[in-house]
Amino acid sequence: MDTSVIEVQDLSKSYGPTRAVQNLTLAVNKGEFFGFLGPNGAGKTTTIKMLTGQVPPDSGEARVLGIDVTHHIEVKKAVGIVPEVVLLPSFLTVTEYLEFVCGVRHVDEGQAAFWLDFVELNESENVLCKDLSQGMKQKLSFAAAFIHKPSLVFLDEPFADVDPLMQKKLRTFLNEYVTEGGTVFLSTHILEMAEKLCSRIAVLSKGTVLKSGTLSELLREGPTLEDVFFTLVRTHG
């Protein structure tokens, strides 16, 4: 029996006159690698921000790991988040940032050393976060998202600036994470990445889900995920 770790019902959010997300309904099960695809401005980041307690929804309901998303601190305690725009505390060094995250999440500081090594930032451990390259910031953000061993992570374009070698390492890690029971909610523009990694996919446009299903279900509508995506967005978007 599937257990939903994310349950969303009629979720909406507007920014002034712009309706970013409209009556969004979806469910993600435990142990899924869920792909959230859509063109720019489709509402992917706003959805992730609502589901992770970063932005309050205007209407609708959403529960993440059984927690109402309006209880934003409880949600943030439970999940890991890699945001699209990685903002790190400017004046902390790489190591200090990871120690800070350990402190905030009440995790043993040994985790900081492990993740520093895993994302290969040892040589930059004493560099301030503001002086890191975008790719380094993204790697550090990835480490911070997993440091407390969450059972569910939200990744918003996590590979955009990461080099191919590290991308491969992170992909392998994520596959192992899901195999061991973790759940990944991945928002990406890179369709090849979604095709390789995701077990189930939802295509979003103009704030509403156009289609969702397993990869094989979606591929019934076209030869490749790219074809399916283009058709859906052009027809309904």
Partner: peptide
């Protein structure tokens, strides 16, 4: 890039307060 030696403030106090102190000092 300017390198900074590691502070032990995070071991001694609340992490958010420690971060604020470091921010004031280094900025």
């Amino acid at each position: 890039k300017k390198l900074f030696s590691r502070t032990n403030l995070f071991h001694r106090m609340d992490p958010v307060l420690a971060k604020e102190i470091i921010d004031v000092r280094r900025s």
